[in-house]
């Protein structure tokens, strides 16, 4: 199987673990006419079963931990986890709060970090490109 087909048809599932909505509306903005990621074959799907990429936002509230793990398990391999935003990457301004279990990489393995509070839509698209690179590496290692 060619990896090219894989790269050009990434289906994305958006998982919010307690974010402030800032990253989430930028992810949505990526879909809208101005940025239109569908032209790269990227599209948001409604269930993790269909997803290739998990877009995770938010600093992971304690109540969300089992759900994050379950969603990760529900996503079929090969899969890539992308963290959008500072909170998800390293806790951000909420790091010291008593109700956090994150950042996300302490709960599930993360491949791509897109920092920013929130990152610009362009940065999110670039993050997806980074995910492609990661997939290529996986192919070279014979994982795919």
């Amino acid at each position: 199987m060619s990896l090219k087909a894989f790269k050009r048809a990434l289906w994305v599932y958006h998982l919010n673990t307690g974010s402030c909505n800032g990253c989430d509306i930028e992810i949505l903005a990526v879909l809208t006419p101005r940025y239109d990621v569908e032209r790269f074959g990227i599209r948001l799907v409604g269930t993790p079963r269909h997803a290739d990429v998990l877009l995770v936002t938010g600093p992971v509230i304690k109540q969300m931990v089992p759900r994050v793990k379950r969603i990760y398990a529900q996503t079929p391999d090969p899969k890539v986890v992308m963290v959008i935003g500072n909170c998800g990457s390293e806790g951000g301004v909420f790091y010291e709060s008593y109700n956090l279990a994150g950042p996300i990489d302490q709960i599930i393995p993360v491949t791509v970090y897109v920092p920013g509070c929130p990152p610009r839509p362009e940065a999110i698209i670039e993050g997806v490109a980074k995910a492609w690179v990661k997939l290529e590496q996986l192919e070279q290692q014979g994982v795919l």
Partner: peptide
Amino acid sequence: GRIGPPIIQPFRDIRKLLMKE
């Protein structure tokens, strides 16, 4: 008002799905 995916997108989608678990 969007550009939209390339016309061969469904082929890519299916090929990709076949690679998936």
